[in-house]
Design a binder for these strands. Structure first.
Lengths: 190, 190
DNA sequence: ATTATCTATAGATCTATAGATAATGC
DNA sequence: ATTATCTATAGATCTATAGATAATGC
């Protein structure tokens, strides 16, 4: 082999991580494989020995981004509970760096237009996130997973709105209003 | 002129409405002008006498979709208040027909990546929707616009999630959980 | 004569494939 | 000999432009 053992796996991992960032920052449809590959320091043609299609890369990228998110979520939950999750998720920092942030906030409508394979990957990882959240949320609620789902939807919708509006002051207002709502829903404030 | 007076305006309007539907159902980046024009019964080259660029069409399409949404919202609010809005927004019908539905739910991350012009158009129309909603929401809240913003974010995020997951049963659960949350937030249930 | 639309095309980019290259392990 | 990557390219599609066409109003 041209490069040492494990080199191919390293390339594959690098492609996935770069794609996960580009997809989140520029959108899935708007991101070409050529750009991903050149960012990874490789050429166009080296893509297909790693993945059978762009769709395959999309699935792997979504999985990768959401696994990272799951680890982060665990840490923040342990450190400061739901309160801290809401603060971090709806921070100006997260709003201003979509490429490193929540895949759902960056990609959800596009994921909804993907094939079943990618949507299945998304569904599994979403459920994992929601279950992590559910353990810290709506302690007196009948359906804690339902509360977690809705809280996550609120966070995600809020972040998307804060990213889309052209007025920075309004964007900050949206973050605050969403955080209040998420606290009410999750039961941090009763 | 080849066609009677007002014919050009009619074509322009048709292009905008078809684009507004295609963008919402297939995504902005994934929709080519050729497809829009052929759906409108015109050829590629007839696009540019109507719009100076694809970006210009995007702005007009977002505005068109949101003006329609505003009219619908007014009707539903008058007929059944926030309760009815939540039910209609989170209905399986709305979930299953993104092309005719909420532009925010279908396009928000992509709108966030557009230029200032489109984001300004979006911002103005979002504020109009939010103000309509605010008049019927959080009657005892200090910041009713904030409550309306968060309620809308919850609806939108919920619909996106319900569209993206691959399991129909989970999708229905998401709609229900989101509706409960929106009712709590908006003050329909205290 | 005017003008809404059409035909034709430029030039860039897209996903995907085929075959060549070159550095390693044997 | 194997194989990770490269070069080169096919074939489709993208946005955008230039000039031709044809049906109307004058």
């Amino acid at each position: 082999m041209r490069y040492g053992k494990g080199h191919k796996d390293a390339s594959r991992q690098r492609i996935i991580e770069i794609a996960a960032e580009r997809f989140r920052s520029d959108g899935i449809a708007a991101t070409g494989l050529a750009r991903v590959m050149s960012d990874a320091g490789l050429t166009n043609g080296a893509f297909y020995p790693h993945f059978k299609s762009k769709a395959a890369l999309i699935g792997e990228s979504v999985a990768s981004a959401m696994e990272q998110q799951s680890s982060q979520l665990e840490e923040v939950l342990a450190a400061g509970g739901v309160e801290a999750v809401i603060a971090a998720y709806l921070s100006p920092e997260h709003r201003d760096h979509p490429g490193m942030g929540c895949a759902s906030a960056a990609l959800l409508p596009e994921v909804g237009r993907e094939g079943v394979d990618t949507r299945q990957v998304y569904t599994e990882h979403l459920l994992a996130l929601v279950r992590q959240l559910a353990a810290h949320v709506g302690t007196e609620a009948v359906d804690r997973e339902g509360v977690a789902l809705a809280t996550f939807a609120t966070l995600m919708g809020t972040l998307q709105m804060a990213r889309a509006v052209s007025d920075p002051h309004l964007s900050d207002r949206i973050l605050k209003a969403g955080a209040d709502a998420a606290r009410r829903l999750s039961g941090s404030v009763v």
